[in-house]
Amino acid sequence: MTLIDTHTHLDFPDFDADRQTLMANCRAVGVERAVVLGVHQRNWQRVWDLVQSDASLFAAFGLHPLYLDEHLLDHVEELGDWLTRLKGHPQLCAVGEFGLDYFVETLD
């Protein structure tokens, strides 16, 4: 059975020190692929650089509601540009993250 982790933030700096070990541990328990989610415009390049370094990683670019204060209207257009430019690339797999984090009561 092929296991795929469909929701990771492996690009976050929290994983810089042990990212390779973490990914090796995932593979050891059967997780063969992972989707790395872009949550705001300033991390899309970091996500893309990471997935390009490993054929088992896939990118999903988006604008998460938790970062509404950081998003600009231009970012929506830029997201479209990223998706158009990378259309058909085997490591671009989705549009996301859009987030349904209902735990933030003030987030509508």
Rank of each mutant, 00 (worst) to 15 (best):
P90M: 06
D81M: 04
L3A: 14
L37A: 12
G80D: 09
L107S: 08
F98A: 15
W44N: 02
Q41S: 15
C26S: 13
T84D: 12
G88K: 00
G96I: 06
R19Y: 05
T84H: 10
F58T: 00
L57C: 00
Y102C: 06
M1F: 12
D69E: 12
L100A: 15
I4M: 10
V31A: 10
Q20G: 05
G88H: 09
T21D: 10
V31P: 07
D81N: 10
T6K: 07
H64I: 12
D11V: 07
Y102D: 03
A59E: 01
H40T: 12
L92K: 01
R85E: 11
I4R: 03
R19I: 06
H64N: 09
L83P: 03
A28H: 10
D74Y: 01
H7V: 09
H9C: 09
R46T: 15
V47A: 05
A34C: 15
L68Q: 09
L3I: 15
L22F: 13
Y67Q: 01
L72R: 05
V95E: 01
T2E: 14
D14S: 09
R85C: 10
R19F: 07
C26H: 06
W44D: 05
G62A: 10
A34V: 11
N43K: 08
A17H: 01
F15P: 00
E78H: 12
E78L: 13
Y102T: 01
L83W: 07
E70D: 11
T2Y: 13
H9Y: 10
A24C: 02
Q41R: 15
C93G: 04
H40G: 08
D14K: 09
V39G: 00
P13S: 13
G96D: 13
A28E: 13
L57Q: 03
I4H: 11
V31W: 12
R19Q: 08
L57A: 00
E78K: 07
W48E: 02
H64A: 06
R19K: 11
F103Q: 02
E97I: 00
L37S: 03
P90E: 12
N25A: 15
D11R: 02
H7I: 06
N25C: 12
D11A: 14
Y102S: 09
Y102L: 09
D101T: 07
H7T: 09
H9L: 12
W82V: 01
A94L: 15
W48H: 04
D5F: 11
L50P: 04
T2D: 15
L22H: 06
L50G: 02
T8S: 11
S56D: 03
R85Y: 11
T21R: 05
A59Y: 00
L83T: 01
H75G: 03
T106D: 15
Q41N: 14
A94N: 09
G80A: 03
V47F: 08
F61W: 06
E77G: 04
F12T: 04
Q91D: 11
D11G: 13
H7E: 08
M1P: 11
Q52V: 11
A55V: 08
E70T: 02
G96C: 11
D11C: 14
D54F: 00
E70N: 05
W82H: 05
E32W: 07
V29K: 14
Q45R: 14
V51P: 00
V95N: 01
H71M: 13
H7N: 07
D18C: 05
D14F: 14
T6R: 07
G30S: 14
W48Y: 12
F98D: 12
H71N: 14
